[in-house]
Simulated scan of single mutants.
Amino acid sequence: MGRARSSGRGQPAVEAVAEQVDGGLAQLVPDRDRSRAWTLLIDGAPQSHVDLDDPAYLSFEYQRRFGHVVDLLAPAGKPLQAVHLGGGAFTLARYVAATRPRSTQQVVERDAALVRLVRRELPLD
């Protein structure tokens, strides 16, 4: 995940990852406050944020709103069937998997290069 380098304090630091994808320049930028969290930017515009250690944490307002909708669909913990149009960093799919185990999900993302990048750098469980 990311590119490790020395931080000068004996601990590895993580660098941003940048790669051209169909939609433009994708960047995965580490979150300074959350050790395994990342922000996905496309052409410099923030798209999503994901915390690999806490997939139930939703940083962006639009993600929290979708999370609230998911939370209202059925009793807490009940599995859902979900289709996600647009995957980004798979933040909402990770949220559903974490909060509603055994859910069935399909992510539809038209940018295959972005999917490859995210799957390589931010693996799914």
Results as ranks from 00 to 15, higher is better:
69 V>F: 08
98 A>V: 15
7 S>A: 08
97 A>C: 11
91 T>R: 02
24 G>E: 01
99 T>S: 12
113 A>N: 06
39 T>H: 08
116 R>I: 06
105 Q>T: 04
8 G>N: 09
25 L>F: 13
31 D>H: 05
60 F>S: 14
76 A>Y: 10
103 S>M: 11
80 L>F: 04
84 H>C: 01
48 S>V: 04
93 A>C: 09
15 E>I: 14
48 S>I: 04
107 V>I: 13
35 S>H: 10
81 Q>E: 05
63 Q>E: 15
92 L>T: 05
90 F>N: 03
30 P>K: 01
115 V>C: 04
68 H>R: 04
5 R>V: 15
119 R>G: 05
13 A>H: 10
18 A>D: 13
110 R>G: 13
27 Q>L: 10
86 G>R: 02
24 G>Y: 01
103 S>A: 09
22 D>F: 10
41 L>D: 00
112 A>V: 11
103 S>P: 14
79 P>M: 00
110 R>Y: 07
122 L>N: 02
70 V>G: 04
45 A>P: 03
75 P>Q: 00
15 E>A: 13
13 A>S: 13
74 A>I: 07
123 P>Y: 04
98 A>Q: 11
44 G>W: 02
63 Q>V: 15
87 G>F: 02
20 Q>A: 14
30 P>Y: 03
58 L>G: 13
11 Q>A: 10
2 G>E: 01
59 S>C: 13
115 V>F: 05
58 L>P: 15
122 L>K: 01
38 W>I: 04
3 R>F: 08
32 R>I: 09
27 Q>Y: 09
101 P>S: 11
43 D>R: 08
19 E>Q: 12
88 G>Q: 01
33 D>V: 09
112 A>T: 12
80 L>P: 01
92 L>H: 09
51 D>A: 11
9 R>V: 12
69 V>R: 06
97 A>E: 12
60 F>R: 15
117 L>N: 07
67 G>I: 08
28 L>D: 02
23 G>P: 08
113 A>E: 07
49 H>N: 07
22 D>A: 08
92 L>S: 05
